[in-house]
Amino acid sequence: MLVFAYDGSLNGDWVAHYAVRFAASTPDRCLRMLHVHDAAPANHLAERVARIADECRLLGVGFSAELHPGASAGVAERLIALCPPGPGTTLVCGARARARGLAFLAGTVSARLLASARFGVVALRVVHPGVLGQPGRVLLPVAGHPRGAADAIPLLRLIGADLRHLHVLFVREASRLRLHDPGHVALERLLAEGRAYVARVEDEARAALAPHGFALDASVVLAKDVVGEILVCAARHRVRLVCLGASERTLPERIVSGSPIERVLRETTADVAVYRGAR
C-alpha cells in the first residue's frame, strides 16, 4: 500500500508528484492520501486534492483522500495509527521547504515517521519542482553496509519506469585524524574492496529492477568529506534525485560528526529521498 501524507502546502504539492508516480509503479496502482490537520484543514485543500486526483486519473492510479483531525498526540502519531504496520506499507512525506535553523528534517513530522520504522517511509525534499516527480537520473550513495542495497531496493522499485540512469557511489571514508595520505598500495586495496562491494550492489539493483531498462554506473572514491563527494557526484552526473538511507547514528556520533543527511538536504542540487524500511 502506498500512502501519501499530504500537508496541503505548495511543498506538499511538489512531493505529491512523486507520490503519484510511485503509486503508478506499485502492483495495485493505488494512492491513499492522508491529511491530518491540527486546527483546520489547509487553504484551498479541496482544490489541491482535486488536482492530485486528476493527476492520478491521468496515470491510471486509483486515488482515495482522507481528512482526519489531529489527535492530542500529534500529527505524526495520528499518521502512524492510520497506517498499517509492516513492510507492505510505504508512506511518502515531505521535508521542510525552508530550513529551521539548519535543519530540513530534524523536528519534523517526517523525522518522527522515519524514526518509528513501523512501515517503510520515504521523506522527500524537492529542489527540482519542474521534473514533477520524474527524476530520471538517480544517485544511490552506499556506505558498505553488509545488507548492500537491500534497504534501497523498495524505493528504487517505486521510482520504477522513471529510472533512466542509476549511479551507485561508495565513498570510503578516510580518517580525519590520519596524518598522511595512504600509500598507493593501501589506496588501491581500499578502492578494490569498494569496487567489489559496489559490483554486488549493482547486481542486486539490476536483478530487483529487472523489468525496467536503465543505465547503471558506479564509482568508488576515498575521501574525508563523504557529503561533499555525494554532492559533487550528484552535480557531475546531472542527477535529479539522491536516495539516502536514514541515519543510524547515535547521539555522540551526531554531536561529533553532525548529521550528513541534514547537510545533504541543505546543500543539495538534486531532490533528495530519505528512506527507511520497516523494522
Binding site: V126, V127, H128, P129, G130, D225, G228, L231, V232, A235, R266, E267, T268, T269
Partner: peptide, 20 residues
C-alpha cells in the same frame, strides 16, 4: 515554477558555495 535555489542557476550557485 521554480525560484531561488530551486532554479537551474540556483543549483550552480549552491554548488559553487557549498562544494569545495
Amino acid at each position: 515554477y521554480a525560484t531561488g535555489r530551486r532554479t537551474e542557476l540556483g543549483k550552480i550557485a549552491s554548488l559553487s558555495v557549498n562544494v569545495r
